[in-house]
Nucleic acid binder design. Structure first.
Length: 270
DNA sequence: AGAATGACCTGCTGGC
DNA sequence: TGCCAGCAGGTCATTC
């Protein structure tokens, strides 16, 4: 489900409310992708100082460490005053004095992991090896170009890998490449500087727009208040196989790249 | 090191 | 209706 915009929308929807809350209880359901990494009791008594985001990870700053939350493919968070009895797919509850943060995740590719510090989290390679943050000043076109120039893999797969730029998942990779007019199979290193600049612009534009639109709700994404997003209405290629390209009328094509679906327009993307 | 592949897990859809 | 194959927004370990 969640790519950078959905994670950011989620963050914005509960960060102010939870900040300052003291953890009173932690409830675990079925195992998630990774174990919590500490006894639940160790979190109790700590205060949630704030919520940041790195790539698709949410970072809850606690008074004595960091709680990393990842939504995987099917995760979503809700924040409520009091929580109803946990359902079949509710696998993590953080009960605080300000309310309950609940992770709902049918496929359980998500996780909540405690780390003593950001360094410790990197050491566990949860945050290690992540690329540039696309909505920050560090995402400079020249740096982006230099990085892409080192990579021979198809640009779509380089974007998804997240070690050059973070947060661009399958939907937004397709959208961004369409808007930049670049064929997803093009080797990253072979893209001209001018086209990389267009791609850079498309990434910043599309991700920022998607955050503004509340993310993409394809099946079930919603923010921590249960509100769905609107960006899917702006999707120009994703999920539109066989339908006419909005720019040229050619049918949008679907192909597989590294076991993921890629949607593109064979006329507009060269 | 970078690139390609399989693995993790559940639910839904479409075809027979 | 039932069953099975294939698909889904992510990322890690393993292999070459």
């Amino acid at each position: 489900m969640p790519e950078l915009p959905e994670v950011e929308v989620t963050r914005l929807s509960f960060a102010p409310a939870i900040s300052g809350g003291q953890i009173q209880q932690v409830q675990l359901g079925k195992p998630l992708r990774w174990p919590l990494g500490c006894a639940p009791q160790q979190l109790v008594g700590q205060t949630v100082l704030g919520v940041r985001r790195r790539g698709k990870y949410l970072l809850l700053d606690l008074s004595a460490g960091l709680l990393l939350v990842h939504l995987g493919m099917s995760g979503s968070l809700t924040f409520m005053r009091t929580a109803p009895v946990a359902g079949k797919h509710d696998h993590f509850d953080l009960v605080t004095s300000h309310g309950v943060l609940r992770l709902h995740d049918p496929r359980r590719f998500g996780a909540a992991v405690f780390a003593d510090s950001e360094q410790a989290a990197s050491a566990q390679k949860l945050l290690g090896g992540l690329g540039l943050e696309p909505l920050s000043a560090e995402f400079e076109p020249q740096v982006f170009y230099a990085q892409l120039h080192l990579r021979k893999a198809p640009i779509k797969q380089v974007l998804l890998a997240g070690d050059v730029v973070v947060g661009v998942g399958n939907i937004y990779a397709c959208e961004v490449l369409f808007r930049a007019g670049i064929r997803p199979t093009t080797r990253a290193a072979r893209i001209s500087r001018a086209r990389v600049l267009r791609l850079h612009e498309a990434i910043v534009h599309v991700l920022a727009l998607a955050v503004q639109q509340g993310g993409s709700t394809l099946r079930d994404f919603s923010n921590a208040h249960g509100e769905t997003g609107l960006f899917q209405l702006q999707a120009r290629v994703y999920g539109r196989a066989g339908q006419p390209c909005h720019a040229c009328g050619q049918p949008i094509r679907l192909m597989r790249q590294g076991q993921r679906s890629t949607y593109f327009c064979s006329r507009c993307q060269t």
